[in-house]
């Protein structure tokens, strides 16, 4: 499974999201590759799930992957609930 975390530049917000998601997947025993991307380079990439801040919603209208939008990027509970639901939905 491939999970992309997105932000404008690919190393700030998206990196923080990746670190949080890696921790929670490890704790859940779920195997996945999490990759931070910047919006510009992400277009055309094939992933299963794309995770982004809610304020980025308008940039993800054409996404083919399952989109997960996060309100609070430091809220582990919100991220965990939404990621696990998305993983369940694509299985």
């Amino acid at each position: 499974m491939k999970i992309a975390t997105l932000c404008g530049m690919g190393f700030g917000t998206s990196m923080m999201l990746k670190l949080t998601i890696d921790d929670l997947l490890k704790a859940e025993g779920i195997e996945a590759e999490t990759i931070p991307w910047d919006l510009g380079s992400f277009k055309g990439q094939l992933v299963d799930i794309v995770v982004a801040p809610l304020d980025m919603k308008s940039h993800l209208k054409d996404a083919t992957a399952k989109v997960v939008l996060i309100n609070n990027l430091v809220d582990k509970a919100e991220i965990k609930t939404k990621i696990l639901a998305a993983i369940k939905a694509i299985k």
Partner: peptide, 9 residues
């Protein structure tokens, strides 16, 4: 350019 997503929480 990229919007207010800099507001992370």
């Amino acid at each position: 350019e990229l919007g207010p997503y800099a507001v992370i929480a």
